[in-house]
């Protein structure tokens, strides 16, 4: 008779429980009404079951977002865990929607659920992908924009994981600056 070992039937638990949110830009509704929780998961297997079941970012309509956040943190600046934080922001050009967007987003998800940022993983709140006509964006949100050491380390590791060239700079911006900006650009607190 065949023996089934525990490794064959137990799911692999993640360090954190994560919530995947979907934002659909319906102008007849308010911002929070357009934000929907899709599902929560806390094992490797349940992550893939969800990921394999939903559309890739490149297939979403313009104005839509996916957000993956630790359970208990809402994907908005106003959440207590986000309000002092900021984001590593990657802006993609239009061509990259076909070449890089889905690959970068999956890599971002794997960084988060696998706790890729070593001792700084606790700083991570979540990640967001915005699908926009002018160019898509992917960002990793962290909880404290003053925590330079953690932020820079996360940024460097993230860039490595995405396979970005050394010349390609990504910037970190505080949510405070992003929400109060008057023009279309926000100053970078850090860049790697």
């Amino acid at each position: 008779s065949e023996t089934v070992t525990p490794a064959q039937y137990l799911k692999h638990p993640l360090q954190n429980r994560w919530a995947l949110w979907y934002f659909k830009n319906d102008k007849t509704k308010g911002w929070t009404e357009n934000l929907r929780l899709i599902a929560k998961f806390d094992t490797v297997e349940d992550f893939w079951a969800l990921y394999n079941h939903i559309q890739q970012p490149s297939k979403l309509l313009f104005g839509c977002d996916y957000c993956l956040f630790k359970d208990g943190i809402k994907p908005m600046w106003e959440d207590d865990k986000n309000k002092k934080g900021g984001r590593w922001l990657m802006t993609l050009n239009k061509q990259q929607r076909h070449n890089d967007l889905d690959r970068y987003w999956l890599e971002t998800l794997l960084c988060l659920i696998g706790e890729a940022f070593d001792e700084h993983s606790d700083e991570v709140c979540g990640a967001v992908v915005n699908v926009r006509p002018k160019g898509d964006k992917i960002a990793i949100w962290t909880g404290n924009c003053q925590n330079r050491e953690a932020i820079v380390s996360i940024g460097q590791l993230y860039k490595e994981r995405l396979g970005l060239s050394l010349k390609a700079l990504i910037g970190y911006q505080s949510h405070d600056d992003t929400s109060s900006k008057s023009g279309s650009t926000t100053k970078n607190l850090f860049s790697v």
Binding site: H12, P13, L14, Q15, V44, E45, D46, F47, W48, A49, Y51, N52, E107, L110, I113, G114, E115, A116, D118, S121, R161
Partner: peptide, 20 residues
């Protein structure tokens, strides 16, 4: 300890999950 998984480990489960 922390449950950390590298990308290859995670990727290895992508299609196992669907079949269970």
């Amino acid at each position: 300890g922390k449950k950390r998984y590298d990308r290859e480990f995670l990727l290895g489960f992508q299609f196992i999950a669907a079949s269970t």
